[in-house]
Design a protein around this nucleic acid. Structure first.
Length: 470
RNA sequence: GGCCCGUUGGUGAAGUGGCUUAACACGGCGCCCUUUCACGGCGUUAUUCAUGGGUUCGAAUCCCGUACGGGUCACCA
């Protein structure tokens, strides 16, 4: 069992690509197979500097081990398509030799004319194969004169080709719509389809997992495998991942790339966990699981046929689960990367205490900044809901007054704050919400917050007393 | 437009002819617990599986049509 992840080096990995990689990885590892990274850089224009390091880094963060790739080659290298050009040429020529492919000297203009003709008749464009009828001498002459050419594969004009897919079953594609596909471009680079087939075969890939948008094209792949008389890999096409709005993923509809999520403070484990459940589900009911468990549970037969929508709320929930389960010191180290301290004069212990009391309600790293903001402001303006509450019972002003008296002359510790609350309770014989909420509002100005004693302690003596004296 | 694929709740989904008058999870709403808040727990949220026919004693599950959604038809990957 060998699977591969074959991205283009664009320096960007959206969630759909990552999800495909997760499936590829899980499948390979389930059967103790190898996971190969191949860089598809045949489009010179779209190449991005440093993209390979970026891909390695991303996969590493996600917990993937790359068995073979450009930075750790195995015996099937090179793993960059741009370094395999002679290979593609060799195989393209082999097909020409066998009479299964031919040189095509058609110019851009000729093709455009052809295209127009098809458009006029409202038919899909199919190359008419005129160059396949060129006499031998003419071809030789053109080649000698350096006329630019591409190599095209001869496709059958009748009948149909069956595409076999693990998820979608058998699909019949009419051969008449198949173009004599270009194998080698005039710049000497292979087309994506051609390079894919050559590489998958030479790299002994057994299972190809890819987006459903390639399903129709697989007929062309099959014809290529047949032309070479090679064994086809098992195909597993997966439906798309859509954005939150139900449309195709793009930079426009939200933080749809791995790095965006990572930068927001989503843990790679949580991201992987969540994505594995998009378009796939395990036979049992477990949702939160480790990579090892995923590998163990993974079953490619259970991949869904229909596309699924990305949901921020749910990925937040997953992230929340992982954050809650972190050890305190690990959590602090992690959350500090996202925390922007508005007041550097606060000492480290105070900051850590503050960060810690939000650990079990934090959804993602950067959220910490909005959660803690009330601890960094001098503004005290309780909202309407607070005002309503304060007026809801005559005892409330008493509670606040009593608490103030109790805390006034004590040393500023959490124990003493709790003690003051308790004394208030005893003196006035109030408890529950009527006891806590007035104090909470009077000291912090908000109705929702972390543990009350911690909150009061962290707001600080000076500020609290000032508010109580109002 | 031709061809291909899909359609279970707001979302992820289970379900492959009777155990389903549709699991589980997220979100929403409500309640409870911890003397407050949060965490957590519990309940509720699809009279029904896009729709119309058919097959069958029986259909979300099988067949056909329709609608809707998506994909694909490049010297892009």
């Amino acid at each position: 069992m060998r699977t591969r992840y074959a991205p283009s080096p664009t320096g960007y990995m959206h969630i759909g690509n990552l999800r495909t990689a997760i499936f590829e990885y899980a499948l390979a590892k389930k059967y103790q197979g190898d996971f190969i990274l191949r860089i598809e850089d045949t489009d010179q224009a779209r190449k991005v500097e440093g993209a390979i390091d970026f891909i390695y880094k991303t996969l590493e963060l996600c917990g993937f081990k790359i068995d073979e790739g450009p930075l750790n080659p195995g015996k099937f290298g090179p793993y960059m398509q741009s370094e395999r050009l002679d290979l593609y040429k060799k195989y393209a020529l082999e097909l020409v030799e066998k009479g299964k492919a031919y040189y095509c000297f058609c110019t851009e203009e000729e093709l455009e004319a052809l295209r127009q003709k098809c458009a006029l008749r409202n038919r899909p464009f199919v190359y008419d194969g005129r160059c396949s009828k060129l006499p031998h001498e003419k071809i030789e002459e053109n080649l000698k004169n350096g006329v630019p050419y591409v190599i095209r594969q001869k496709m059958p004009k009748t009948g149909y080709t069956i595409v076999k897919d693990e998820i979608y079953g058998e699909i019949k594609i009419d051969n008449s719509i198949l173009d004599d596909q270009i194998l080698l471009k005039s710049d000497g680079f292979p087309t994506y389809n051609f390079a894919n087939v050559i590489d998958d075969h030479l790299m002994a890939i057994t299972h190809v997992i890819r987006g459903k948008e390639y399903l129709d094209q697989t007929a062309k792949y099959n014809l290529l495998y047949e032309a070479f008389d090679w064994e086809k890999p098992t195909y597993i096409h997966v439906a798309m991942v859509l954005g939150e709005d139900g449309t195709k993923l793009s930079k426009r509809n939200g933080d749809a790339s791995f790095m965006d999520l990572y930068d927001e403070g989503f843990l790679p484990e949580a991201i992987v966990n969540y994505l594995s459940l998009l378009g796939w589900s395990p036979a049992d009911n477990q949702e939160v699981f480790t990579m090892a468990e995923l590998i163990n549970k993974f079953d490619e037969k259970r991949i869904s046929k229909s596309s699924s929508q990305y949901d921020v709320k749910k990925i937040e929930w997953f992230n929340h689960q992982y954050i809650k389960n972190m050890d305190d010191d690990v959590y602090l180290n992690w959350v500090k990367k996202y925390f922007v301290n508005p007041d550097p004069t606060k000492d480290e212990k105070w900051v850590e205490h503050l960060l810690l009391i939000y650990k079990n309600q934090l959804n993602y790293g950067k959220e910490i900044n909005t959660l803690v903001q009330d601890f960094f402001t001098d503004n005290y303006n309780p909202n309407e809901e607070c005002q309503e509450f304060l007026k809801s019972d005559p005892i409330i002003p008493e509670v606040i007054k009593t608490f103030k008296m109790e805390i006034e002359n004590r040393e500023w510790t959490i124990e003493n704050i709790n003690e003051a609350i308790n004394k208030t309770k005893e003196k006035l014989n109030v408890k529950g919400k009527l006891l806590y909420m007035p104090i909470r509002i009077a000291t912090s100005g908000i109705m929702h917050g972390p543990e009350l004693a911690d909150t009061i302690y962290l707001i600080g003596q000076e500020k609290v007393m000032a508010r109580l004296n109002k």
